[in-house]
Computed example of a mutant assay.
Amino acid sequence: MAGAVLLPLVLLLAAGCGTFAQEYPPTGVDQLTIPTPSPNPADFVAGVDNPWLPLPAGGVRPVRVTRPGLPVAEGAVTVLADPVEVAGVPATAVRTAVGATVATDYFAQDTDGNVWWLGHDDPVPALSWRAGTAGARAGLAMPATPRVGDGFRRALAPGVEERVARVVEIAPEEPRAPEQVVLEVTSPLDAAYEARETYRRGAGLVSRSGSEGLQRLD
């Protein structure tokens, strides 16, 4: 996802009895319904330029994935030039290719600068979802202005994808402008899943570490 690109929020989660009927109350993301049941195309802009998750069309970044007991895998994350319509919204498509595995995620930015995750196409069909289909809803990938303590759902696809993120660190502290945001991510579908994601201003996701190993984007 991407980066400039958000590495596939492809954290392969097993289907289960999640809490998809519940709303996750944000702790600081004001006036947003997360996940959103029906995104309005008029609320979105072309492209994604949130400073914490910029997705410039044509952007390419190398990615390196390290998992316990497995060889290091390398690949690339590419922001595709042409938008793809998801739930009526022209979404930015981000393709992640690591080894023989290729997955695509879809993001869109609203008029306030918040970035939403609208879907995921996975080589395993059962792990694919798109907002507006089979009860799936778009969640928040990155707020326009992250604040420590903010909590929000990343996605809500019944039995397929359910993830909750919380902002746990913004550094350095004032008076200097923050250059890094750290999120902790969990999933009600998988109690063992946890990840710590680090985003750098102007670059986007630079690392994700946790139960599924370590992913780094250069």
Rank of each mutant, 00 (worst) to 15 (best):
V86L: 05
R153E: 15
V115W: 03
D121T: 15
W52T: 12
E212F: 10
T33G: 09
A195M: 03
R153G: 15
L9I: 10
R64I: 00
R176P: 05
A93E: 07
G3A: 11
G151L: 05
E85L: 02
L32R: 15
A81G: 10
R201L: 14
G16I: 09
G213L: 00
G59Q: 07
A21G: 13
D82T: 12
D121G: 03
E197S: 12
V5S: 13
L156F: 11
Q180W: 10
G159V: 05
A144W: 06
D190W: 05
V185A: 04
L118R: 03
L53A: 15
V206G: 04
E212T: 14
E169D: 10
G58S: 01
R166P: 13
S187W: 13
A177C: 09
F107Y: 14
R201M: 09
T78H: 04
R147T: 12
R95F: 01
Y199Q: 07
G16Q: 09
Y106R: 06
A192Y: 12
F107K: 01
S38M: 09
A165S: 14
V148A: 11
G149M: 00
G58N: 00
A171R: 15
A97C: 01
E174G: 10
T145W: 08
E212Q: 12
P41D: 02
A81E: 15
P146V: 04
A138L: 10
G47D: 05
V167R: 10
A103M: 09
E173S: 13
G151R: 09
A157Y: 11
P56L: 07
L32C: 10
D150P: 12
P71L: 05
L214N: 01
G159M: 04
P37T: 06
V72D: 08
Q31R: 15
A155N: 06
V60C: 03
F20T: 12
L214T: 02
P158W: 05
G88M: 00
A15N: 13
S38I: 02
V60Y: 03
